[in-house]
Nucleic acid binder design. Structure first.
Length: 585
RNA sequence: GGGAUCGUAGUUCAGUUGGUUAGAACGCCGGCCUGUCAAGCCGGAGGUCGAGAGUUCGAGUCUCUUCGGUCCCGCCA
């Protein structure tokens, strides 16, 4: 092997006449009989190397056999390209390397797909040969962005006095929250560890231990169903701080977020970040993670539909609308498609009207007399050529359904500028949600979230109305971080457990160590966790979490490359004392 | 748990109302070619139409079952 003296992205006019060595993969071959051009590639770039049968010292026939993704080591001389042969699309396009000798380090088997074109294979094939897909420009760039994001996080937090501390990966299974991944214990038959859904309890205990400002870039595991932005194992930037309130968390985390976006994308985020309450976010955007890059606000139009002849909405708790400027171009077919779309969110249908000659037409317009039309037009500012979409139902149906429609329409109309980043704090979440299936309250954030100071008495009388000290940081319609000020009083912690239907006994068994720790001088504390993968998705402009993870799993939690999960030997099962039940069918 | 959608050559796709020998491009193999950069030109090999069952004289095409990918609802404190 000729050990490389330069990388494939490095050579310029300054290097002309130098004898150099390059190592890399054959990106493309252009064969012209007695002269052969090859673009040699490594992660730094591409350089054109030229084999000329008159100058080349080795076996020219062997060079003719080279194909894409063979691995080469070459010795040659940098030369300028003749005028007209310069390639302005390559950073090394002004030079080329005349090869003197070459060693074929590794010959590739026939490729399952073409590396230079990521779209040339379906995703399952690309995942099976992930090491090949990782050679593509796009994934190389994403993985590098991920790397730089780790470094930006570590340097900012470390510079601000945060201490990086590792917490266990084998921990105790706890009730509440997502399903745990379980790990059987060989030494303790019949007992299991759980993989952490997050290091929540450990980081609170670190505050009690006096570490004051903690962070960790940490893998978390949740055994639920997956989506374009959800993997069974994912990474969090986990942060906890002592002697703080919400404002301290906001200012520190805004600093971190601004630092990341400046370092990675040279973007200046606002200072401070805007805030909205959970209730307002739902009322105005129909979402607890609103994309504020565009308007399309939800309007309350119940007073107008109540005055109309359209009776279906008379009994509805809530009737809301969004107006799409220029939306009158939408055909019946498109509107039917949008109707099917909102039905996924439990809406029974989607009504609409179009602005035309200062009046409303189509859809349910005939149920609105002239006065009513003009009042509605005035209130919602419908103009000629616009369309208004209306949904009436329970408030808990109307807002999410219209919110989803708002996002769908923005996508259709290209309203979300990918180069704009709009952070937004969402605050004042309800403390509890009522779970109709389990017939009990569950924590909206988690059971360690402190109730709002003014609402503590209402824990007894009206739990549903209690607001928490939780907060989410959203950006462009994604939740990028979520956290809360924690409970640091053992009494209130026990009170919340009991409201969640955990008996004192259960609470003691599952979380007793935390409650006990709280009795030994717990500082007021709070924290947050960023979804690291989602953050990198936003930074890279990806819309798929698999594009920012080196070795991702499919939506059915399978790794197609190494075929995990898989069966284990009966000996392994025996040691663990585990017997596999036959399939249900 | 539910819904939608996709599965045809190594790969990406086309394949009509069910009808003869399932096509194209890229890749691969062979040949020509000294200035290309998605090189070009000529030739060739390559198919269990995801799997299974059914309807039919006849199935890539219709029906059912099943496996896998993707997207979504539920779920994800």
């Amino acid at each position: 092997m000729y050990k490389r003296t330069h990388t494939c992205g490095e050579l310029r006019k300054d290097h002309i006449d130098e004898t150099i060595h390059l190592n890399g993969w054959v990106n493309t071959v252009r064969l012209h009989g007695q002269v052969i051009f090859i673009d040699l590639r490594d992660r730094y770039g591409k350089t054109q190397i030229v084999f000329n049968s008159e100058d080349y010292n080795g076996d020219f026939v062997a060079v003719k056999k080279l194909s894409m993704e063979d691995v080469l080591s070459i010795k040659g001389t940098v030369q300028s390209r003749s005028e007209g042969a310069v390639n302005p699309d390559m950073s090394t396009g002004e030079i080329e390397v005349a090869v003197d000798s070459m060693e074929l380090l590794s010959e590739t088997a026939p490729l399952p797909f073409v590396i230079t074109d990521r779209e040339s294979a379906l995703e399952d094939l690309r995942l099976k040969y992930r090491y090949l897909e990782l050679r593509t420009d796009e994934l190389q760039k994403n993985i590098l962005t991920r790397h730089k994001t780790y470094q930006a996080v570590r340097s900012y937090l470390s510079d601000n006095n945060f201490v990086e501390i590792e917490t266990p990966t084998l921990m105790k299974s706890t009730p509440e929250g997502a399903r745990d991944f379980l790990v059987p214990s060989r030494i303790h038959h019949g007992k299991f560890y759980a993989l952490p859904q997050s290091p929540q309890l450990y980081k609170q205990i670190l505050m009690i231990s006096g570490f004051d400002r903690y962070f960790q870039i940490v893998k978390c595991f949740r055994d639920e169903d997956f989506r374009a932005d959800r993997q069974p194992e994912f990474t969090q930037i986990d942060v906890e701080m002592s002697f703080v309130d919400e404002e301290d968390i906001y200012s520190n985390m805004e600093g971190l977020t601004r630092h990341i976006f400046k370092e990675l994308n040279d973007v200046d985020l606002p200072d401070p970040f805007p805030r909205i309450t959970y209730a307002d976010a739902l009322a105005k955007y129909g979402s607890d993670k609103p994309d504020t890059r565009y308007e399309l606000f939800l309007n309350d139009v119940k007073e107008f539909t109540d005055r109309s002849e359209f009776n279906a909405f008379k009994s509805a708790e809530s009737v809301k609308a969004i107006v799409l400027p220029g939306g009158a171009k939408y055909s019946r077919k498109i509107i039917d498609g949008l109707t099917d779309f909102v039905k996924k969110y439990k809406a029974k249908g989607l009504t609409w009207m179009k602005g035309e000659n200062g009046k409303l037409s189509g859809g349910i317009a005939k149920f609105f007399d002239e006065n009513l039309q003009s009042d509605l037009i005035h209130a919602t500012e419908i103009k000629d050529g616009d369309i208004i979409f209306i949904i009436g139902d329970e408030k808990t149906v109307v807002e999410p359904a219209l919110g989803a429609l708002r996002v769908e329409i923005a996508k259709r109309e290209g309203l979300a500028d990918p180069n704009i980043y709009k952070p937004l704090w969402v605050t004042s979440f309800p403390m509890f949600e009522y779970d109709e299936v389990e017939n009990r309250y569950t924590a909206m954030h988690h059971p360690f979230t402190a109730p709002h100071q003014d609402d503590i008495e209402k824990l007894e009388t009206d739990p549903a109305s209690v607001l928490s000290r939780g907060y989410d940081l959203t950006m462009n319609g994604h939740e990028i971080a979520g956290g809360s000020i924690r409970i640091h009083s053992p009494e209130i912690q026990n009170k919340v457990f009991s409201l969640l239907g955990l008996s004192l006994e259960d609470a003691k068994e599952k979380f007793g160590f935390l409650v006990e720790a709280l009795t030994y001088g717990a500082p007021p504390h709070g924290g947050i966790a960023f979804g690291f993968d989602r953050l990198v998705m936003i930074l890279t402009g990806s819309n798929n979490i698999r594009d920012v993870i080196a070795f991702p799993k499919t939506t059915s939690a399978v790794s197609l490359m190494d075929d995990a999960p898989n069966t284990v030997s009966s000996q392994q099962l025996n040691e663990l004392g585990i017997q596999i039940k036959p399939d249900k069918n």
